[in-house]
Simulated assay, not measured.
Amino acid sequence: MRIRRVVTTREGGVSKPPYDSFNLGDHVGDDPAAVAANRRRLAEGVGLSLDQLVWMEQVHGRTVTVVDGPLPAPAEATDALVTAKARLGLVALVADCVPLLLAEPEAGVVAAVHAGRVGARVGVVPAALAAMRELGARIDRVEALLGPAVCGECYEVPAEMADDVERHLPESACRTRGGRPGLDLRAGLWRQLADAGVARIGLDPRCTVEDRTLFSHRRDGTTGRLAAVTWFEPEEGSTG
């Protein structure tokens, strides 16, 4: 199986400020027509039809939804999508949270995870890995990509919050650039993935707060959402 992964930026769309311009979130106050046009551009750009993109109603939880075909609407109240269906693009939307793309090429199983502070703390990633295993994936063959997110140097939180998340997600607590308590969720998720047996973990090092080509809610307040998308192409001669 050929695994595909795409992470968008804020450039190349039609949305007007403060959503300029390639906003893919339909829940942030942007013009629905602009969001629809941007989503069409995304589908065309990655070579899928619009109905082959699967979206989530993200709620900062640990619910995982397994999908086996196009959905008429976003998957309700979920923060991870898993599929064993070829050419079904799973989408996570973020503007500081961690987008995590998972794939097990031999089994043909992929997942897109929205891992914010709350979801990461309560275990959305182990839940996604468990759902992949149920579809035939072997965890030692899973590949992971931790996408752009707020970095630990920029993510200041109260000390009590940092300590609480650290208890549930070891190695996530850190110090910010100013020396105050912070969270590096990607560091904690890396450790969690490695402890689970995931052997291949990649990291997109970009910080959404520091990189103005990316959307950041912490930096800008009202803003758009970037997308992390994954799917797999069937092998030659396979029907998927």
Score class of each variant (00 low, 15 high):
R138S: 11
E134W: 11
A92G: 07
H27W: 10
E153D: 07
A107G: 05
A43C: 11
E143N: 08
D96A: 02
M56H: 02
V113Y: 04
V150H: 02
E156Q: 06
V124W: 02
P72A: 14
V122E: 05
G136Q: 06
E156D: 05
V91L: 05
V110W: 07
V94M: 13
D31E: 15
C154F: 06
D26R: 09
E76W: 13
G116P: 05
R62Q: 08
E153P: 03
V91T: 13
P74I: 07
A92D: 10
E153I: 04
L24R: 08
A92E: 05
A103K: 10
D96W: 03
L50K: 12
V157G: 00
V28T: 14
E44R: 12
L50S: 15
E153F: 09
P126E: 05
V82R: 00
V142W: 02
G136S: 07
E134S: 11
V142D: 05
G25W: 07
C154H: 10
F22E: 10
A37S: 12
A144D: 10
E44H: 13
G61E: 01
F22G: 06
V110Q: 09
A80I: 01
G136V: 09
D140A: 14
H60L: 03
C151F: 11
R87A: 06
V110H: 06
V150R: 01
E134Q: 11
R117P: 00
L53H: 06
Q58C: 08
G29R: 08
E143S: 11
D31S: 15
G89P: 09
A127N: 07
K85V: 12
G108A: 07
H60G: 01
A95F: 07
V94T: 15
V82N: 02
E106S: 06
L53A: 07
A34W: 12
A92S: 15
G25S: 08
A77N: 13
A130E: 13
E156N: 02
P158T: 04
A92M: 09
S49P: 04
D140R: 13
D31Q: 14
Q52K: 12
H60P: 00
G89V: 11
D79C: 08
A75G: 04
L93A: 10
V94Y: 12
V125F: 06
V66F: 04
N23Q: 13
P148Q: 05
V82A: 01
A75E: 00
V118T: 09
R133P: 03
A80L: 04
R117S: 06
V28N: 14
L100F: 10
G152T: 00
V67K: 10
V109Y: 02
E143H: 15
P158E: 14
A92F: 11
L129W: 01
L100R: 01
V66H: 03
G119M: 00
A120C: 03
S49Q: 15
T83M: 11
A131T: 02
A130N: 06
A111Y: 05
A95G: 01
H114E: 09
G45V: 13
R41W: 13
Y155A: 06
